[in-house]
Nucleic acid binder design. Structure first.
Lengths: 232, 232
DNA sequence: CGTTTTAATTATACGGTGTTTATTTATTTT
DNA sequence: AAAATAAATAAACACCGTATAATTAAAACG
């Protein structure tokens, strides 16, 4: 019957310590193996104590997802900001490289964000959507800047079909009036990059792919060349 | 203390009934929520009885994955076989369409195969790899046929870098001597299609994407046109 | 046909999980 | 100093996967 510890021997910043303990466990055993009781054990507290800070396990997972999205968005933003605003192709390339780099550095976080590793958990979209939108916005803005500079190559085979046009105009009105091609390319490039990342992380590539990084770099390079004019 | 039921009131084909009960549960609540005890309840038996047919839960999951891979491969093969062997572009397009169709028809199966929804489970590669290779082989062969017919467009910007060439030659020697471009395109197309499918299934598209099918179709169409010459 | 062996199923139990409730106690407020 | 509040715990509940031993139907054999 241990009493409640005195404030000065008590753990401070318990909410964030819970988060980082959870990250440790996720990094070690994957997001699917996350356990409230194990987190509590690691912190030297009991499991119900966590309920003072997170109403249930799903809330903790949501906090982790928001956390991961911030880290992800920061990494992407830093990659773009690291290059002059006028070097659109290099910016796009750097963005793609940073995408994979973050994904393979924190594969569990990436799968926590984009996969469905948690048992009964469905992410509340009103919380995760804005966080996710940031990553998309960085790509979309990079392409929009290139478009404004007249560097966007015309789409190889015809333009986008009318129904897709309509779809993207709704999107454009909600965001910064980017043209349909920019929004379309945003999604397609994202899907390509995401597909490569997710296959690599999930170990789905055939074993002959000894250097996924080279495959990724080359594909990204071609993708950039296919979309943007080469700059001086 | 109910005794063991007599053979004629006993469930026959218990292994496959376990599998289909598991599929029902997965379709209902997702692969992450799969529970041996719930499967047993649904079949009117006790949980340990399952252990006569599957040594542990992971073995059951592995059987489910193999099952899903067969269904997936069959769907892809049927799509390709449904068109004359000479219509390479149409075959490639049909293959891509069948890919998404299967994925959105059985999203849980797709995520069971390509995601990591199960808690401590890691798929035994010696079992899943051959099954997965089949899907890749169908795409690879479709492209190889088009290449043999001289319909493969030259890669837009230069050729594949030497290190990638070397990587794919190892692969080519293990498979049917397909050229490097074919193998490279196999992976890139796969990643693009997989990326789109996984984003759609995971609900990661921005809400403005009201018609993901149209987006997919148009992208696949452009992908085919970008890779193959138009046929007569 | 009776007996023995075998195999399938159940009952029980252990340690794990998320979560709820009531209780204790340190801190804060009055 | 007393009362109120908040944070932590202890205990319990209902799940889970899984191991073990007991039970019993079916099969094999003499």
């Amino acid at each position: 019957m241990s009493p409640r510890p005195r404030r000065d021997q008590q753990l401070t910043d318990l909410p964030v310590r819970i988060l980082s303990a959870a990250w440790e466990q996720i990094a070690q055993a994957g997001a699917a193996a996350l356990s409230l009781r194990a987190v509590a054990r690691q912190l030297g507290i009991t499991a119900p104590a966590i309920y003072n800070y997170y109403p249930d396990r799903d809330a903790l997972v949501t906090a982790l997802i928001v956390d991961a999205f911030h880290s992800f968005g920061d990494a992407l933003q830093a990659a773009v900001d690291g290059l002059p605003a006028v070097q659109h192709a290099r910016r796009l390339y750097a963005l793609g490289m940073a995408y994979r780099q973050w994904a393979i550095t924190y594969p569990e976080r990436y799968q926590l964000i984009f996969g469905t590793p948690i048992a009964g958990y469905v992410a509340p979209q009103e919380i995760t959507m804005p966080a996710a939108a940031r990553a998309l916005a960085i790509l979309s803005e990079t392409l929009a800047n290139a478009h404004a500079a007249g560097l966007l190559k015309p789409m190889p085979t015809g333009s986008i079909s009318p129904d897709l046009q309509a779809m993207f105009q709704v999107w454009a009105q909600a965001r910064g009036e980017a043209p349909s091609e920019v929004l379309y390319l945003t999604l397609v490039i994202w899907a390509q990059v995401h597909g490569l990342a997710v296959l690599e992380i999930g170990g789905q590539f055939p074993p002959f792919i000894s250097d996924p990084g080279a495959l990724y770099e080359r594909t990204l390079e071609m993708l950039v060349n296919q979309v943007l004019e080469v700059e001086a």
